[in-house]
Computed example of a mutant assay.
Amino acid sequence: MNNVLSVNIRKAGYEADAPVIRDIAFQVEEGELVGLIGPNGAGKSTTVKSLLGMLRHVDGDIEVGGSRKRWAYVPEQPVLYDYLTLWEHLQLAASAYGLGESTFTERAERLLEQFRLTHDRHRLPAGFSKGMQQKMMLIVGFMLEPDVYVVDEPFVGLDPRATRDFLALLETERRRGAGVLMSTHVLDTAERICSRIILIDGGSVVARGTLAEIREQAGCAPGAPLTECFYALT
């Protein structure tokens, strides 16, 4: 297997002399879903911002692999333009991605139907519910079909059907060879779908590996839920 994302953050923060995270290193392989978990304030958001190039004060090395070396980011908080319709948001993203018209139309139509937003295409997303806005951001990310997805708290606002659709799309993309780094607080879902888990606390990695390896590092019994390991390690 080849790495589609390699992260080695020696230190990073919002001010030059005040690092928030240290020694965060991991890889995401083709077809792999890596869960990034930790309590509030542990450093998950700073890690994501660092690897996306959103912070000025980062000492580290980030490498995106894959055949096209392309990544897509799905933020926790939707990014909306007040006077653009849903379809116009998708057109803007397609233009930024450099997607051809026919490719854009096929992918956008398919994803709108899958997330049941076809009849909302000419509405302004500023008036959507939180869940509908989140589905729009997922569509924008999935349109690119990148080598790696970075997804931040994707389940916020999604109803059970939308969650099922999202997970099905993730599985399809993983079979295509895309890797996924997903930051989430939904530990029961992370336990079920993640290939490996990175647990951060106090700005550093405190455990990493498969669920079985996390249980061993936490001193938990075989079969213990991820939640129990989380409490033991943080």
Rank of each mutant, 00 (worst) to 15 (best):
H57I: 02
A168V: 08
E76P: 13
A207D: 05
G209I: 09
L187W: 04
W71L: 12
D23R: 07
F115A: 02
L181C: 10
G98D: 07
Q91G: 05
Y83P: 12
N3V: 00
A218I: 07
R22C: 10
V48I: 14
V180I: 14
R70V: 14
V4A: 13
P78N: 03
D59G: 11
G202A: 08
G98M: 05
T105S: 14
G202L: 04
T118A: 15
R70Q: 12
A72T: 00
D152I: 01
G209T: 05
R215E: 05
L144S: 11
S195M: 00
L90K: 02
R110A: 15
R164V: 06
R175S: 09
P78V: 06
F115L: 05
G209A: 07
Y83D: 15
E191K: 01
V58G: 03
L187Y: 04
Q27T: 11
P146M: 08
S50V: 10
G41W: 02
R164I: 00
F230S: 00
M143E: 03
F155W: 09
S45K: 09
K44Y: 01
A224W: 03
E76T: 12
E173S: 13
N40Q: 06
P125R: 03
P39C: 13
S204K: 14
P39W: 10
G223Y: 05
G131S: 04
Y149E: 04
V20W: 10
D147W: 00
F104G: 03
V58A: 02
M137L: 09
L226S: 05
F26D: 01
L211I: 11
I193A: 08
T210A: 03
Y81H: 06
L233G: 08
A18L: 13
M182A: 02
L169D: 11
C229Q: 04
L55E: 08
G202S: 00
D201A: 15
P225H: 14
N2Q: 15
R174Q: 11
F230V: 05
L199Q: 11
D17S: 13
P160V: 14
Y81S: 10
C194T: 03
R10P: 08
G179I: 03
P146T: 05
L169Q: 07
I198F: 06
D152G: 04
R192Y: 02
G60D: 04
G98H: 08
K135D: 08
P78Q: 02
Y73R: 01
V150H: 09
T118N: 12
P19L: 03
C194A: 15
L55D: 02
